[in-house]
C-alpha cells in the first residue's frame, strides 16, 4: 500500500514542471519512505529519513529555489536513449531478483552469517540494548567516522562555493530586513517551541543507546531548531547569538573529537577506535567511547547543517541587496 503511494508520488514528480511542487512531493516521498522503514522494523533509519530526507533536504531545496527559477523549462529531452538505459538497468535488476531469498525469509544468508553475533553478543560485548547503535558506533564505527567526514566534506564544499564577503554582509544587512518580521503568531509559537526542540535534540542524542536516535538525528533536530529561529528572527540576530566562524570551527571540532577518540585508543594500546581500552572495564570503555563519538557526530552534523543554511540564506540576502 505504502509502496504504491510511493510509486504514485514518484511518477507525479516526473510529470510536474513546477519545481516547487516537485520539491514538496519529494518531501512527501521521503516521509512515506520513513513510514515504510518503520514498517520494516528499521526505526533508526525511519527517524533519520524523516529528519534528514523530509526535513533538511526539503529545506535546502526550497532555499535553492529562492535563488533559481521556479519552473522547469519544457524542453525536448531525449527519452528514447534514457528509456533504453533505464530498461536495461531494470531488466538486470529484475533478473537479479529472481534468485533472491524471499522477503521476510528468516533463513536468508543475511540473517545467518554476520548479524547473529550482533544480536546475541553485543549486549555482553558493547552493553547497549539498541543493537543498531552498537553496530554503528562500535563494530562498524569506522564507517560512521567516514560518514561524518562525508558530511564535513560537503560542508567544506558548500562553504567554499557559497562564500559571501564580510563587506557585502555588513552592507546587505542594513538594507534587507528579515523576511518574517511581521509574523507575530509564528514568532510567538516558535519562541515557545524552540527550547523544547533543543531539549528534544539532546534527548535524542543521549537516549540513542536505548532507543532509536543518536548523533545524526539529534544533530539534524538541533540544527532545525536554530534554522527555525533564523527564519523568523533574521540572520543578523541569529548570528549575533551564534557566530558563523564559531559554527565553522564546530564542524571541524566534531570530526576531530571522533577521530581523536580513535587516536586516544591507539595511544592507550588498543587498535584504532577500540574503545575497550578507554576504561579498565571493556563494557564501560565502550560506553564512554560511544558517548563521545556520538557527541562528535552530533556536533558536526548540527554545525554543518546550520552552516549550510546560513550560506544559502546569505546568498539570498546578497541577491536581494544587489537588486
Amino acid at each position: 500500500m505504502l509502496l504504491s503511494f510511493l510509486a504514485l508520488t514518484a511518477i507525479a514528480i516526473t510529470r510536474m514542471g513546477d519545481l516547487f511542487a516537485v520539491v514538496m512531493l519529494s518531501g512527501i516521498y521521503s516521509l512515506l519512505s520513513a513510514s515504510l522503514f518503520l514498517d520494516l522494523d528499521a526505526v533508526d533509519v525511519a527517524f533519520t529519513e524523516a529528519s534528514v530526507g523530509a526535513g533538511i533536504s526539503t529545506l535546502l531545496f526550497l532555499a535553492t529555489l529562492k535563488l533559481v527559477p521556479r519552473y522547469e523549462k519544457k524542453s525536448r529531452y531525449k527519452p528514447a536513449l534514457a528509456l533504453g538505459v533505464v530498461i536495461v538497468t531494470g531488466a538486470l535488476l529484475i533478473y537479479g531478483t529472481l534468485d533472491m531469498p524471499h522477503f521476510g525469509d528468516a533463513d536468508a544468508p543475511v540473517h545467518q552469517h554476520v548479524a547473529p553475533r550482533y544480536l546475541n553478543d553485543s549486549i555482553n560485548e558493547v552493553g547497549l540494548p539498541n543493537v543498531v547503535t552498537s553496530v554503528l558506533a562500535s563494530y562498524r564505527g569506522y564507517d560512521t567516522l567516514g560518514e561524518v567526514v562525508v558530511v564535513f566534506a560537503a560542508g567544506i564544499g558548500v562553504m567554499s562555493l557559497l562564500m559571501v564577503s564580510q563587506r557585502t554582509k555588513a552592507r546587505a544587512l542594513t538594507k534587507v530586513p528579515a523576511d518574517m518580521q511581521h509574523q507575530i503568531i509564528l514568532r510567538i509559537v516558535a519562541k515557545m517551541m524552540l527550547p523544547l526542540i533543543l531539549i528534544f535534540a539532546l534527548y535524542v542524542q543521549f537516549h540513542g543507546d536505548y532507543g532509536p536516535g543518536g548523533g545524526f538525528q539529534a544533530g539534524v533536530i538541533f540544527a532545525a531548531g536554530i534554522i527555525l529561529y533564523t527564519m523568523l528572527f533574521g540572520l543578523s540576530l541569529t548570528q549575533s547569538v551564534i557566530k558563523p566562524v564559531f559554527v565553522e570551527m564546530l564542524t571541524a571540532f566534531g570530526v576531530l573529537l571522533y577521530s581523536g577518540v580513535g587516536i586516544v585508543c591507539m595511544i592507550l594500546g588498543g587498535n584504532y577506535l577500540d574503545y575497550d581500552v578507554l576504561s579498565h572495564d571493556p563494557v564501560h570503555g565502550q560506553h564512554l567511547g560511544i558517548l563521545l563519538i556520538e557527541l562528535g557526530v552530533g556536533i558536526t552534523v548540527a554545525a554543518v547543517m546550520i552552516t549550510l543554511f546560513f550560506k544559502f540564506t546569505w546568498r539570498t540576502v546578497k541577491h536581494k541587496y544587489n537588486q
Binding site: I56, S57, L60, T64
Partner: peptide
C-alpha cells in the same frame, strides 16, 4: 542517507 544528503547539499550549492 547521510551521504545522500551531503551529496544533495553540495549539488544544490
Amino acid at each position: 542517507i547521510v551521504v545522500g544528503i551531503a551529496t544533495t547539499a553540495l549539488g544544490l550549492a
